[in-house]
Design a binder for these strands. Structure first.
Ligand code: ZN
Ligand code: ZN
Ligand code: ZN
Ligand code: ZN
Lengths: 163, 163
DNA sequence: GAACACCCTAAAGTAACTACAGGGTCAAGC
DNA sequence: GCTTGACCCTGTAGTTACTTTAGGGTGTTC
């Protein structure tokens, strides 16, 4: 199996497979001697699929490493695995709590302006400009990874010409 | 006011202020001629505080640019501001929906192993290894930025010695 | 004049990819 | 034999919003 087929089976881009190999997450494939193409077998596909399932649960590479390591020691206790899942569940829940708080603040903010008026009278800007009575404290820091709410394809250019 | 005082008033690190200036979000400060230190006034503090409030709502720099731009035109309609907040609220809600789905999957996964047993018998690994009947599809892509659940301080090293 | 808090710049690191530049390999069709 | 197109390779840079590090100047105090 070459890299395109492996990636297709695992449902991820080819570049991601090469990236995982560089990171060591995926074992380096044997190369075809004549053309230097990577050759994969089913155990590679197994491992890659495992990794992608963990990523779809938003685990970090560090968390995935820990699971892969644990898997290498079938005789050890699985306690650390159970704990890792618990901890990661807390990561996700912590972030949800933050986002719920943000949602509330944004709904409050939005309620400051319903009609379209002149910008100078917009209640939203007014509220952003002066703290007001709503709690403007930044959300208490959590031990969560899992951050953000914006897709990477959001363009962030400002007054610059597009190509 | 020099940079340390400004940062303290706004509740953010000094480096972040310099970073915003490089990005253009914050206007470049006048420099003290003798020592080249940045000198700020209250309008800088206003703008920085505005930016930080938007960031605490998890807006991107692009979204903040749009608000800052709109604020420059007090006579225009504030419709775009209202829409921006609506859209960003959708970003946050979309991410919450994703995280709720993740939470459900993780709870399912965790339920596969309650006692600490040998790793070879761990129901969690078993489930991660073979798709099982639970829906393993990656969460439908949203138009959200706001991603992740892990804090940046999570260490992600594996078998490497610490310094 | 030494300690210490403060300021400066430029460059690299973070997480997990994604994209690009520049080029080799292979099968099919003309 | 040559072109077209799909596939593969390497290496590097870009993404987001910062943070960290290296290396060095400034200002006040003891
Ligand atoms: Zn986690
Ligand atoms: Zn308005
Ligand atoms: Zn947004
Ligand atoms: Zn277990």
């Amino acid at each position: 199996m070459q890299i395109g087929e492996l990636a297709k089976q695992a449902g991820c881009p080819v570049e991601t497979v090469r990236y995982y190999e560089r990171e060591g997450l995926l074992h380096a494939a044997v190369r075809n001697e004549s053309n230097n193409y990577r050759q994969y077998n089913l155990s590679h596909l197994d491992r890659l699929t495992f990794i992608r399932r963990c990523r779809s649960l938003d685990m970090t590479h560090g968390e995935i490493w820990a699971l892969l390591d644990a898997r290498q020691q079938p005789d050890a206790s699985c306690e650390s695995i159970n704990e890792l899942i618990d901890t990661h569940l807390l990561h996700v829940q912590a972030r949800m709590t933050e986002l719920r708080a943000l949602e509330g603040q944004l709904i409050d903010l939005r309620s400051q302006c319903h009609a379209a008026r002149a910008t100078r009278d917009c209640g939203i800007l007014r509220e952003l400009d002066h703290p007001g009575d709503t709690a403007w404290r930044s959300p208490a820091l959590t031990h969560s990874h899992v951050s953000g709410s914006h897709s990477s394809s959001d363009a962030h250019n400002h007054g610059e010409k597009q190509k």
